[in-house]
Design a binder for these strands. Structure first.
Lengths: 325, 325
DNA sequence: AGCCGGGATGACAACGTTGTCAAAGTAGCA
DNA sequence: TGCTACTTTGACAACGTTGTCATCCCGGCT
């Protein structure tokens, strides 16, 4: 910047004014500075800039996701990016892998870099540690899972309603023995889906058979193994509700291996690419990660714009995509 | 930091020494400072720190991808993150959607934030604009596609070899009329795959029928439409090589709609989740985005560690996954 | 006692930028 | 002409941190 000022024959402050498009610079000086910037290929140092600025904004937000590479997280990430680019804001992202310590480490790393705001898909079960960040004025929005011991803006899928829809669908097709495959109960969304399953069974006056319920499953392999065991029961379930993406895939694999994919119905929670090309197609309760990301980003930016209204809690509806299973 | 110093009754410099674990601080003062930091929940301001430091490192790298949300990009992104966390480095990511202007804008935004290095999956066809960054000392690594008018480290898939493997596979199964579906020829990887197709046809003494070649296709719909047209030809192709992910899906849809999925062979470039569950499973030339990301990140960090050897060019091999098509 | 060496500590400047305020210049008006 | 009001410009301090260097203190030596 010093060089630019020297080349243009003006003071540092004038260069600063041109860069930030502040009013009160004559057209002639402005062009001279612009030319110098061009010639020297000068780039503003945003770190120094945000250090000095009163608001201290870094034009960067942080996003903490379960796993950047999984389709749900990455679609959400992308939706946030889409909102952010419009404001010239960049996105820092990190994966948690259900690791509470990593969550705190990431928050701390983001805080060190003075991000303007945070979108968090949490793994931990106590977010009181975030009170300090809040005091520092950093807004945050929780997505997919709610915070614990902390009131904050949230954007959630309608897990309970979605699970109930799934059971309604199966019950409407005459199924009475509906098995349940669920992820770790410690994950709030998984617990809600299970609750939806029980509630809807209750409404439909169907018995809840503990033998048909398999909780705390992680990954396709476990799901495939448990599904195989379920199908060996007598009487066997006539339908399976897999309450998570990978569990659906595992269940599907098991059904095909046993040649039962046309006999036993399968409904999954969360859509799967190519689910429409299987035979039969898999019916799913589709979440809408793009809508969640957009909502979360908009909420965050409205806070950054000074919105001080009480915490908002948005529920993003699910969609049942019937594909003949 | 001032407050910490005051509370601990020491100077700013001593606090700085404790934070950076510099030697030459008595144990007593060190603990007093540590307690004060804890009490005040002090967080170092990395922006100011990197501003003052001689090396000016921000412990942040930038990653520019085609689309954060697509599985290939996001797996790559994740692999980079995995290498970065080990060093306490955070990752900024942006999507460019084949937009050259966006590529430059992202590089500029990253440069403003003084990232330590850049991993780029480029869209543009002239990277001489990066010479200035290089002069500034920022290392960068290109992944998936090579840079133009610039010599830089690269990590590429063996596109040509992979395409040849696909044709070998089909030829070995007796196919003589093999159609080709390709993405935009302006994309280097697409051009190489097409070249591999032609070379291998030549080696096998098979004629290259221009009618069977459909280039510059984008997205599943176009692929589905073109596949439909291809299958209407007389004589029709007996096999299809779809040289990109989405094109494979489009081709698959068309085959199923026409009920030809057991008659016409299909080989795709790049793996598809669930491809193994279709009937028949789709044979693919699988790329290895995780290996590419790891290689790119390691290359970048070795540069950051001062490696000044000539530019490296890593080729990541493909794998043929035969699934009976 | 006087001196030297080395370890601990702090004062101060500097990183690249912007906020504040004063100075200089210009135009308008009585 | 002399005054005010306003616009343009720049000098300087400050943001939060670390590099440099001086100071202080203590033990061991002559």
């Amino acid at each position: 910047m010093r060089e630019v000022a020297a080349l243009a024959g003006v003071s540092l402050k004038t260069v600063s004014r041109v860069i930030n498009a502040e009013p009160g610079v004559s057209a002639e000086l402005a062009t001279r500075v612009a030319v110098a910037i061009e010639r020297l290929d000068y780039r503003q140092n945003l770190q120094a800039s945000s250090l000095r600025r009163v608001d201290g904004k870094s034009a960067t937000i942080g996003v903490i996701l379960e796993d950047i590479a999984n389709p749900f997280s990455s679609t959400l990430h992308r939706a946030i990016e889409n909102v952010a680019v419009k404001r010239g804001v960049l996105v820092l992202a990190g994966s948690l892998e259900e690791d509470e310590a990593r969550e705190r480490a990431l928050v701390s790393a983001f805080a060190s870099r003075r991000v303007d705001g945070l979108v968090i898909m949490p793994a931990s079960h106590d977010h009181s540690y975030l009170l300090n960040e809040r005091k520092a004025g950093t807004p945050f929005v929780f997505v997919d899972r709610p915070p614990a011991f902390l009131d904050a803006d949230t954007v959630l899928t309608d897990n309970l309603g979605g699970a109930r829809r799934a059971i309604q669908h199966l019950a409407a097709h005459g199924h009475q023995r509906i098995a349940y495959l669920g992820d770790l109960q410690s994950i709030m969304t998984a617990a809600l889906r299970y609750q939806g399953y029980r509630e809807e069974l209750d409404v439909k006056h169907l018995p809840l058979d503990p033998e048909l319920v398999r909780l705390d499953l992680r990954g396709t392999e476990r799901a495939e193994a448990e599904t195989t065991k379920l199908l060996a029961l007598r009487p066997a379930p006539t339908a399976i509700f897999a309450a998570q993406n990978l569990l659906t895939i595992g269940a599907c694999r098991a059904l095909r291996r046993l040649g039962l994919h046309h006999k036993v119905a399968l409904v999954g929670f969360d859509d799967i690419l190519l689910a429409d090309m299987l035979d039969p197609g898999i019916t799913v309760i589709a979440q809408d990660p793009a809508a969640m990301g957009t909502a979360a980003a908009e909420l965050l930016f409205s806070r950054l714009d000074g919105d001080r209204s009480p915490t908002a809690h948005r529920i993003i509806p699910t969609r049942l995509i019937a594909r003949g299973s």
